[in-house]
Structure formats: structure tokens, C-alpha cells
Design a binder for these strands. Structure first.
Ligand code: ZN
Length: 311
DNA sequence: CGAGTTTGACCTGCGC
DNA sequence: GCGCAGGTCAAACTCG
């Protein structure tokens, strides 16, 4: 509703390019504090492998990490259709589980994990849940808690594969991920970074609750699956390097649109923000109910081979 | 008490 | 026009 910003509409109508402009404007105006990405001390390559691996255990990979992965692994090219083709293992994102539904909508399939709380760095507030016609599982609706952000996401469990969660992202984030803001007064856009993990909620909710029907013991398993650990909000330093684009999208979109080094063209693509959410966190944790609130996202979110695998 | 979740009601689009 | 299904609202409730 009101949240829906011009960016949102523009995206729907035209292309995300418009959004980009808007976002940029916002950035210029509102995010003065934004500091340009600093050079990454760690070689991208290591970052990719090392950090991501580590993050798997403790915290969700950051955009930076993912970015690095992509940069290293794939010099890919983008097809006009919006899907990205990767080289080495060149598989289109579509094949990897990322599908572009609309100019500003993407779906991501994630493997569900049980405990971790994967946080995509953004806070989400659940505003609805609906049972879907041919699915035994309900779909949850989330909005970014930032009042100026129109990003939304829908989380539902795949009826075919119970351990797969399908997340549909819609809209761009017009702000940085929380962790990224040190102590910004506020104007920043989002709320100040929360040092503690207030409630990371969503995790529970999304999947937890809805899916909680049966907390699946760590199904995550898959070896090549990237699972986000939780790190709470903290890790989300998404886009530290990603310059302005950082705020816009999280990983996927990022990847989608900038398969190439995002440093340059940044998001000219379409945008979408994605976060990930999902997973329940086991009931135990999240489910506790609101475990949080805002959540970030699900507990652990893992990119399965089918979805996105950086490794 | 504030922030977030839950959940039924309401709204809207679409097919018949 | 009607009914269904999906999406959103908002009051009530929970938790820290
Ligand atoms: Zn947002």
C-alpha cells in the first residue's frame, strides 16, 4: 500500500531501469552516509570459497561473498530474457531455480534447513498467510519493514519437494541491508542496525510456521547446498562492495542482473530483491513464535544445486 | 509498551 | 453476474 513506491510501480510498468534511477536518487538524497565499498581485502576467490564455506556454519553468506563467487566462477552473460547464463558450469539461473516471473518478480527455490536462520540482511514483516489451492502448504506474505521500501516476498513450500521452499520476490529494496548500517541516525532508511538480534523472525514464520507442520530435521543436507547459517542480522553486510546497488537487491537479483562484475554496470537489469527466507528454524527456535520479528529470513537458506550453487 | 505475528475478513482479478 | 482463488488489511494477541 502506501509502501508501494514509485519505484515499485515503475518497475511494473516499465523496466527496472526506472527503478534504478529512482533508487539512485534516493541514495543520493537519503543515504549520504553511504560509504563506498571499500576494497575487498580478501581476494575474491578466497572470499568466495572460504567465506562462503565458513558462513555456512555461522552466518549467511553476504552479498559480497556471493558476488565474489559469481565474479570468479562465472563470467557469464545475460540473455535478454533475463536469465543469466553462467559459464563454467553454465547453467541458466532458471535452471538453477531462479525464475523471472515478471519484470520485477523472481522466484527462488531454496532448500529448507532446519536451524539456521538465514538472514538475507533485510527485515521482513509478515502480513498474511493463505492456503493455496493445490498445495498442502500455505503461502506466507512478507513485506520489507522499511516504510519506504516496497519489497515483498512470498514464501511457500514446494508441494513436490517438501524440503524446497519457493520464494517469490517482488520489488526492490531501497535501502541497505541492516547490518550494513553502523550507526546511522535513522534517516538511513532502514532501521538502525540491530546489534542484538531482536527477533529474527521470520524464519520461524515463514517456514517454520507454515511449514512447520513438520520441522524437518535438517534436510538441508545436500552437499552442494549453500546453507546460510544464521548470523543473524549481523552478517548482512550485503553489498558492502556492491556500491549503490547494494541496497537494491540481495543476492539473486544481483546475480541475475549483474552477472558480471557488478561493480560497473550495476543493476541495470531488472531488479528484484530477493532475500531469502525460509526455513524454519526449526520449530524450536523460531517457532517460538515470533521469534522475531522481523526477520530476516529464514533460517537457513540454502541454495541447492537446483537453485544456486556457488560451489 | 513497542514491534511483530496470527488470522479472519475484505478486496480484486479472472474464468465461466 | 457469480464464484473461486490469490493477495492484503487490520484487529487482536504474543513476546521481549
Ligand atoms: Zn527493503
Amino acid at each position: 500500500m502506501e509502501c508501494r513506491t514509485a519505484a515499485h510501480e515503475a518497475g511494473a510498468i516499465a523496466t527496472w531501469f526506472d527503478d534504478e534511477l529512482i533508487v539512485r536518487q534516493l541514495l543520493d538524497n537519503d543515504f549520504a552516509f553511504y560509504s563506498p565499498p571499500g576494497p575487498n581485502p580478501i581476494p575474491a576467490e578466497e572470499l568466495a570459497t572460504t567465506q562462503i564455506m565458513q558462513s555456512t556454519l555461522r552466518s549467511p553468506p553476504t552479498v559480497q561473498e556471493i558476488q565474489a563467487q559469481w565474479m570468479n566462477q562465472q563470467p557469464e552473460s545475460v540473455s535478454d530474457s533475463g536469465s543469466v547464463l553462467v559459464s563454467p558450469s553454465r547453467v541458466s539461473l532458471r535452471e538453477r531455480g531462479i525464475n523471472r516471473i515478471d519484470s520485477n518478480k523472481y522466484t527462488v527455490k531454496l532448500k529448507w534447513c532446519e536451524n539456521g536462520m538465514a538472514d538475507d540482511g533485510y527485515k521482513w514483516r509478515k502480513y498474511g498467510q493463505k492456503s493455496i489451492k493445490n498445495s498442502p502448504y500455505p503461502r506466507s506474505y512478507y513485506k520489507c519493514t522499511n516504510p519506504r521500501c516496497s519489497a515483498k516476498k512470498q514464501v511457500e513450500r514446494s508441494r513436490d519437494e517438501e524440503d524446497i521452499i519457493i520464494i517469490t520476490y517482488e520489488g526492490l529494496h531501497l535501502h541497505f541491508a541492516y547490518p550494513f548500517f553502523p550507526a546511522i541516525p535513522d534517516g538511513g532508511g532502514d532501521n538502525p542496525p540491530t546489534p542484538k538480534r531482536p527477533r529474527t523472525t521470520s524464519p520461524g514464520t515463514e517456514s517454520g510456521e507454515r511449514f512447520r507442520e513438520e520441522p524437518r530435521p535438517g534436510t538441508e543436507s545436500a552437499s552442494s547446498v549453500l546453507t546460510y547459517g544464521n548470523g543473524g542480522d549481523s552478517d548482512g553486510l550485503f553489498f558492502m562492495n556492491a556500491a549503490p546497488q547494494g541496497l537494491l537487491e540481495d543476492l539473486v537479483p544481483f546475480v541475475v542482473r549483474n552477472p558480471a562484475p557488478l561493480l560497473s554496470s550495476s543493476y541495470a537489469g531488472d531488479g528484484v530483491s530477493n532475500n531469502n527466507s525460509l526455513c524454519s528454524n526449526s520449530s524450536s527456535s523460531c517457532s517460538s513464535h515470533r521469534s522475531s520479528s522481523v526477520t530476516s529470513s529464514p533460517s537457513c537458506f540454502s541454495w541447492s544445486p537446483e537453485s544456486l550453487s556457488f560451489l
